[in-house]
Design a protein around this nucleic acid. Structure first.
Lengths: 326, 326
DNA sequence: TTGTATGCGTTATCAG
DNA sequence: CTGATAACGCATACAA
């Protein structure tokens, strides 16, 4: 079933059918004839032929490090929600945390494969930069501020600052910190900076020896919480840079009968699914991951419409979710 | 840069270049010339033109009810892992739990859009059946046994049976059950059946009044656990049909100081991410979600290669993960 | 407003 | 083994 068949059946030219499908530069009489035939036959234009002509695929490539992550699946939910309404589809590329896959997909997607790319990367290197610069389609990043392309990121500094302030306002004075190394800008650097700045702004000395770091996992929280608890001057609250780390800390404290928040308060950042279901429910901050997906979709669509639009950096806010752990 | 340009530069015909790219029915001499030119220019064939000719898109449509679900993201991880090695891409369609979207995508994907569809549906209705039957591309289902197309599903009956047996072997005698309604075959019917059959096989009377149902959420677990605990003949173990339900039950028990597993044991099914991090860690069963994705990808690829291949039903096994909640 | 003719970049056919 | 050439299904410039 092609456009020509429809034209024949409706007694018009193929061009008329094409116009009916697109601009609509057509008389009412023919419009109605064509409509009837299309309805009867259930005809649908061939995407490939359209693509070959128009050079548009109506596809957005989404490159992710892994799919089974709470924040990432929320972002994708946002992207798909926005794109569903715009007649675009998601082409998903899972790099499985392999840096080379990321570069590979970036290259693969270039050749008239997708109209634009949303990159959810952990780190953007010089190599990324080189490849992205060479692409003919727009690319945007989510989850990290990038200087040479538009990006959407979260207010890590602000959230950490606000959370620290919340802790102080509840009367906690001796704060411990469990974070990650500073090669991770967003979590390792910005969140710690927010924590420290807030302390200093409130005239509370920042104690470097109460700042412990480890990986992005529960063991980090568990082990470093143990260390913190064995110090002569125990902290009365523990600020964890991520919910996962906080989970580990809570686990340690529960296991050792150290009452939360009576003996020591705990908080995380990120509002993971688990945060609300543990005992006690964890105080954390929501980063609006889904919204960042929605905005990312809008952003790439805008870039496709208008390739010359300027580089944007959109910082999303946060919301402190206070539960019973502080 | 088209195939014609390459042909000109290499001093051969476009057909020769095409053959070089495909069958390879070509002399060594020309092969080398073409190779050199392609390497120099970095030429890559146009996917759209290829698709228009070959009627193949090298795309697999994956229809899911929602993305931010643990089991579903694991399945997708499996699919993408398998497809990455096969030069196929994933076209993701998120129905957001909207039944009509599911039917819409099923239809949309038909027109030379994708080469095959993997459907991760919650329920397959007569309407699904009608549409799927009318499609010209293969469709398989994951997560549910379907009779008219190939499908991959989990051993819900067996897992429930085995878990119940485990409970009995640990000495628990008065088992309560919190599940979901029977419109859900896998969870609502099969798991309950496994539970009941096991009891009967061990000569333990099945008490209908200790079987409570509700939705797929924590509230169900919380509320029904409360009911169970207020019965005159309290159960000494609670079998929850899903981990999420179990989370709610554990929450209630912890909140009311009812010691797990001393006073009452709790178990779930599904091995969600949260299961291992709560206190006490939850005993559950792993369903090998990722593997079902891998197998699903293999299955749809096989169907594409060989459309006449018979309808298959693959049931994946399970593994009981015993933790401290029983 | 309408129709005709052309080309998008490939692959497949077929005669050499 | 090779090279013209005809589709594939559509959108658009142009002439009417």
């Amino acid at each position: 079933m092609t456009i020509a068949d429809i034209a024949k059946m409706a007694g018009v030219s193929p061009a008329a059918v094409s116009r009916y499908l697109n601009d609509g530069y057509i008389s009412d009489e023919k419009r109605e004839k064509i409509r009837a035939v299309i309805e009867k036959t259930g005809y649908v234009p061939s995407r490939q032929a359209q693509q070959l002509r128009t050079k548009r695929t109506k596809l957005i490539g989404v490159i992710i490090p892994k799919i089974d992550s709470y924040s990432i699946s929320c972002i994708i939910a946002g992207i798909s929600e926005q794109l569903n309404g715009e007649d675009y589809q998601i082409l998903l590329a899972n790099t499985d945390n392999d840096y080379n896959n990321e570069l590979k997909f970036l290259r693969t997607f270039n050749q008239d494969f997708v109209d634009g790319i949303i990159l959810i990367a952990t780190t953007v290197t010089g190599e990324h930069r080189k490849i992205i610069k060479s692409l003919k389609i727009p690319v945007i990043a989510i989850g990290q501020k990038v200087d040479f392309i538009s990006s959407i990121y979260h207010d890590d500094y602000g959230a950490a600052y606000a959370m620290t302030e919340r802790l102080l306002s509840k009367g906690y004075k001796k704060l411990g910190y469990i974070g990650v190394p500073d090669w991770d800008i967003a979590v390792g650097v910005d969140r710690l900076r927010g924590f420290r700045d807030c302390l200093e702004d409130h005239g509370i000395p920042f104690e470097q020896d109460k700042v412990l770091t480890g990986m992005f996992n529960m063991d980090n929280g568990y082990d470093n919480c143990k260390k913190l608890m064995s110090m002569k001057k125990r902290p009365d609250a523990i600020f964890c840079a991520t919910d996962t780390i906080a989970l580990g800390a809570v686990h340690y404290l529960n296991e050792h009968g150290i009452k939360i928040p009576d003996k020591v308060a705990v908080c995380g950042l990120g509002n993971g699914k688990t945060a609300g279901v543990i005992d006690p429910p964890l105080t954390t901050a929501d980063y609006f991951y889904k919204e960042s997906g929605v905005e990312g979709a809008k952003m790439i669509l805008e870039k496709i419409e208008n390739p010359k639009s300027p580089v944007l950096s959109l910082m999303l806010g946060f919301e402190i979710i206070e539960r019973r752990s502080i």
